[in-house]
Amino acid sequence: MVCMDFGKLFSKIFGTNKFKFDEVHIDQEVIESILYYAKSSDPNEFMAIFEGEVKNSILHITGLIFLPSETSNEGVIVNTGMLPVMRTQWGSVHSHPGPSAMPSDADLFSFSKNGLFHMIICQPYEVENILAYNRYGEFVEFKIV
């Protein structure tokens, strides 16, 4: 008699393994774009959705998707309903026009509803000022490739 773990069976039937990853790799060009847009939009925030895929348990972020939004120095509202239906929303990146890249309560709510990996960049908008989080607001490490 062959016995299969229910979780593995569920993943096999519904293809949920495509959402599991152990590492996050981000293209250098994506990081450069994040730095550029954060600096360009200051003193307002900017926000973009991550484009990428999971292969071999690595989430590889390969681009940014910009959707219609309303922005100010206190926040940004993005119309995620404009994201194509078949597009996976891996997460988001946005800027904080101040010295903290810690998520606000609104950020944490957004993280929990929109993707699995999120970044916040704060002033002075350098690579060292980027922090990454999972959907629960816990720190996540990433590698620039």
Results as ranks from 00 to 15, higher is better:
8 K>L: 15
111 F>A: 07
3 C>W: 14
135 R>I: 09
10 F>G: 04
15 G>H: 08
30 V>F: 04
127 V>N: 08
30 V>Q: 01
24 V>S: 01
62 T>I: 04
107 D>G: 10
31 I>H: 01
111 F>W: 07
63 G>Y: 03
6 F>E: 14
127 V>D: 07
48 A>D: 03
90 W>Y: 07
37 Y>L: 00
117 F>V: 12
101 A>H: 09
49 I>F: 01
83 L>I: 14
62 T>N: 05
92 S>A: 15
106 A>I: 13
30 V>L: 01
32 E>Y: 11
119 M>F: 06
131 L>V: 11
35 L>C: 00
62 T>W: 02
33 S>F: 06
103 P>R: 05
35 L>T: 00
87 R>S: 12
137 G>V: 10
7 G>Y: 14
7 G>T: 15
72 S>V: 01
96 H>S: 03
85 V>W: 11
2 V>Q: 12
112 S>A: 07
120 I>M: 05
132 A>L: 10
116 L>V: 09
89 Q>T: 07
37 Y>F: 13
119 M>T: 09
109 F>L: 13
75 G>Y: 00
60 H>E: 04
1 M>V: 13
35 L>W: 06
145 V>P: 12
98 G>V: 03
63 G>F: 01
124 P>W: 10
9 L>R: 14
109 F>V: 15
27 D>C: 06
138 E>D: 13
94 H>A: 08
58 I>C: 03
137 G>M: 13
14 F>R: 08
117 F>M: 07
130 I>M: 01
124 P>M: 04
24 V>K: 02
106 A>P: 05
62 T>V: 01
119 M>Y: 07
8 K>D: 14
48 A>N: 03
29 E>L: 12
86 M>V: 07
59 L>W: 06
129 N>G: 06
71 T>Q: 07
1 M>I: 13
58 I>F: 00
100 S>K: 12
113 K>Y: 12
140 V>G: 00
18 K>S: 09
122 C>A: 14
47 M>I: 03
34 I>K: 00
84 P>D: 01
135 R>M: 13
117 F>C: 12
96 H>V: 02
64 L>D: 02
91 G>Y: 04
41 S>I: 03
49 I>D: 02
141 E>Q: 14
137 G>S: 08
112 S>I: 02
85 V>N: 11
108 L>Y: 07
